[in-house]
Design a protein around this nucleic acid. Structure first.
Lengths: 201, 201
DNA sequence: TGCTCATGTTGGCAGTGTCAACATATACAG
DNA sequence: CTGTATATGTTGACACTGCCAACATGAGCA
């Protein structure tokens, strides 16, 4: 019954990850500290090294967690749409919403070199989220809301627009409220899909 | 003639800034170190504090330098266009080109908290670059290549698209070569301007 | 000449990521 | 049941960082 257990915690790896996610949310990547994570998990400053080779590997795990949340939010948001095009737009809205609600987490997901320049990983960390977008795009193509053809360039274009909005908002360069940013996203994606349908060739 | 001058350098502030810009380009913001800047400038590890109150203030100066370069590149690039719309698109191309050529510098400009969340500065660091974009947008409006009305939302939309392309490219999420990325940018901005002209209301 | 001050210096402190060495608890071979 | 290997925790140390305090030097000005 709850005897003291100086060694071998129940599941220290997950405890560390949870503490890391919380710490990122509070102080951001710049003030994120391995030793503070260990403190919050109630272990010595070197315990994390038994589960993560280096600080950046723990941050990769944090980013992966972020991509899971992002994927879930995109799915949940897009499910509320009536038409294929509506679902695609809500997918982008969910993307921006996540960035606004978890700005620090969002930063780690896209600005961590270990993730960014991973040399030819067969399964990039953000693949699930990208697949949600791809699904929405292809559905919109089949319903005639987007032009037929290779969906990948369409996905890149849509992703770039929405990612740019998210990044500029998070970095304080779009002077809009949370709500206004989401509306702006909606409007921008409408414009883009209209352009995709009407541009020549 | 070239006597030793242990104190009072010619213009240490600019020397430090140049060394900082070079160091950022080489190692990026994460491995950027005040002491290494001082080493390269040939001064003691505390000399920078006589010119910059803290590390982040030196980084703000680095970012400002980056925005100057960005502004110049956007101007130079857009000047090659024949039409107002062409100049607008080349402006975006110059933006992405800068990001691809100076990825680390670009990171500092948009991910430094001191810049991002500066509370209501009357002259944001990136205002000059934004003004170049605004000029291109308003010229395109006057030539009928873009719809009339408030140019600011148009600028935000175009900026978001191009910024997203730049960010995703720099973080390794768009598997395209430098050249292909620039072509993709051109194509994406065409699509966007077409959508802006054709979208209802 | 002598005072003040801007701008450099050295030295030190707390905090960090990481390595090495040590300790303990569990699992499994005999 | 006993002994040993291994996984997982610990303490201690090192080099390095940003920043602070105290001191030194040189220029400008009364």
């Amino acid at each position: 019954m709850a005897r003291s257990e100086p060694y071998h915690h129940e599941n220290l790896r997950q405890t560390l990850l949870a503490a890391a996610v919380a710490l990122i949310g509070e102080v951001g990547p710049r003030d994120f500290t391995l030793r503070e994570v260990a403190r919050r998990a109630g272990v010595s400053h070197n315990a994390p090294y038994r589960h993560f080779p280096a600080k950046d590997d723990l941050l990769v795990a944090v980013a992966t967690d972020g991509f899971d949340q992002l994927t879930a939010l995109m799915q949940k948001s897009s499910a509320r749409g009536k038409t294929a095009l509506g679902r695609l737009q809500l997918c982008g809205r969910g993307y921006v919403d996540f960035a606004l609600r978890s700005p620090h987490h969002f930063l780690v997901m896209f600005d961590l070199p270990k993730i960014s320049h991973e040399p030819c990983k067969d399964e990039p960390v953000g693949k699930n989220a990208f697949d949600v977008l791809m699904g929405c795009i292809m559905a919109a193509q089949q319903s005639g809301d987007l032009p037929a053809g290779d969906p990948v360039p369409l996905a890149w274009t849509a992703w770039s627009l929405v990612h740019g909005i998210a990044k500029l908002s998070v970095s304080g360069n779009l002077p809009l409220s949370h709500r206004a940013t989401l509306n702006f996203t909606q409007r921008a994606t409408e414009v883009l899909s209209c352009g995709l349908m009407n541009v020549e060739a």
